[in-house]
């Protein structure tokens, strides 16, 4: 799975360059994310290129959140497209994640 990471003032911004995060791509996502999450504490997922997420993709993002909060870190999501937001709101995940409009908003609010 094509991922790019950028370090910005101690915050790791992960951009997912993929159109869909579903059962077919989620395994790769998890493997790719493991080393990324190992060292980072504050992470932002930029989902602006993602046009589709299903429940397994959601599960993977949830597990990232659990890993990070488990070690005192934080995860924020930004740049969600309409279909992705529809899923998050359908399963009420906007009550669990901090969802922000833009990367700037996310960088601004993440706990230091």
């Amino acid at each position: 799975m094509p991922l790019t990471t950028e370090e910005m003032n101690g915050v790791l911004v992960v951009t997912i360059h993929e159109k869909a995060l579903d059962a077919s791509s989620v395994k790769q996502f998890k493997t790719d994310m493991t080393p990324v999450l190992e060292h980072a504490k504050l992470v932002i997922f930029d989902l602006s290129q993602l046009e589709f997420v299903d429940s397994s993709g959601l599960g993977a993002i949830l597990s990232c959140l659990r890993q990070l909060t488990g070690k005192g870190g934080d995860l924020k999501l930004c740049g969600m497209t309409k279909p992705v937001r529809a899923l998050f709101e359908l399963v009420r995940m906007h009550r669990i994640f901090d969802i922000l409009n833009t990367r700037e908003e996310a960088l601004h609010t993440i706990r230091r």
């Binding site: 299903d54 429940s55 397994s56 959601l58 599960g59 659990r66 359908l90 399963v91 669990i96």
Partner: peptide
Amino acid sequence: EPVFDGSQGHGFGLFIIESC
């Protein structure tokens, strides 16, 4: 039934199908 408190990362599939 699915749990919506974020403690579980699975079990949403059927809920999604049935609510859609």
